[in-house]
Design a protein around this nucleic acid. Structure first.
Lengths: 191, 191
DNA sequence: GCGATTACTTAACTAAGGTTAACTTTTTTT
DNA sequence: AAAAAAAGTTAACCTTAGTTAAGTAATCGC
């Protein structure tokens, strides 16, 4: 499990054994039971996260209802807006499953960057990837109606539909759980 | 007008007179008449853009209809996904108004970075800002229905509603022009 | 300034999503 | 294993968005 981070980083840049051990040494890994709130509305995020095992959900509370906007699973990083801006968080992060997560703080990330300068390239590349993905995802969302969003999710991330309660999938797709349930029925009747 | 870029960069980092002239020298500025397509579906983007004057629209063609996903106005940069990925573009960029735009190519950006290394910090900071904005914007879109999206746009970017044809505002908000027209009437009747 | 084009509005109709509440199924807890 | 809680489904009703088409207003090009 500890090696997952090294494996991940190595898929972007080559690491010497020395660099690997520096990274290992800085690597703080924690496990959280299902339901743990990693970040709450109003909190100042102290860490960014890298998911080794499990699933984390990002959500807002709007008029008393939870509205999910993102899911994160194995080998995905989470950099909270609050971590970047140092402002209180607008949203929540919580574990949908028992999770194993690597933590990064400002200080330790700073230290890592000094000891392994080539990580800067990784960060630049990941930022670009994230920006591209985020643009494509939000454009797709705008260009589709709820039904097509669901069909698209089934194609692109069937794993999410399988492992996550439908009520969260529903708000993630911009609709209510009742609508998703009805929509699913409509689709199965069609074919 | 030429100074707009220097002014913009200076709001992030301090520039020496020398650095300013290096940037000025590399600065290629072009004017485009209204309706010019800066990037078409299938094109490989050669440049990224910085809008000095005017308004650019990003849109897709879905089932024969244009679906707008973003507007760019004065002092905003446009980095096409195609520019980053070197893959054919999925979307179009076109000028909604006569535009004055600064162009950046890979080669010239590379050269600029070598001559003015502190620009790297600007780029890093802008990337972060972009990512944060993009996350907040797309979360907001998910959390609102069409009516609230329109009201929110009126509050946050009234300039767009004033200067851009409603048909494009409509698809940008995820609905049809007919719906937006009806919705506007509904709102005015309410108050 | 006039004709042509484009943008916007309105109306009628259809389809889909929101809301509430009852009910069933599944999961969790003890 | 039983009870409690949570998740999912279904139905009825209401509101809103999509569609098509016609009509009005605004803008553009010559």
């Amino acid at each position: 499990m500890d090696d997952a981070i090294i494996t991940f980083i190595s898929s972007y840049i080559d690491l010497t054994p020395d660099e690997k051990s520096v990274i290992q040494a800085q690597n703080i890994i924690k496990t959280y039971p299902k339901g743990t709130v990693l970040l709450a509305h109003g909190d100042l995020a102290q860490d960014c996260f890298f998911i080794l095992k499990g699933c984390v959900r990002r959500y807002y509370i709007v008029d008393g209802d939870e509205r999910t906007t993102e899911f994160f699973t194995e080998n995905q990083g989470i950099t909270p807006v609050s971590y970047l801006t140092k402002q209180p968080s607008d949203y929540y992060l919580s574990c949908l499953e028992p999770c194993v997560i690597a933590l990064g703080s400002d200080e330790r990330n700073q230290l890592l960057l000094e000891k392994v300068p080539k990580l800067a390239r990784l960060i630049a590349q990941m930022s670009t990837e994230l920006l591209v993905k985020s643009q494509i995802t939000s454009d797709n969302f705008k260009n589709m109606n709820p039904e097509n969003r669901y069909l698209h999710l089934l194609e692109t991330r069937p794993d999410l539909v399988a492992r996550i309660p439908l009520q969260h999938i529903a708000t993630f797709l911009g609709m209510t759980p009742v609508s998703l349930s009805r929509l699913r029925k409509r689709i199965t009747l069609k074919r």
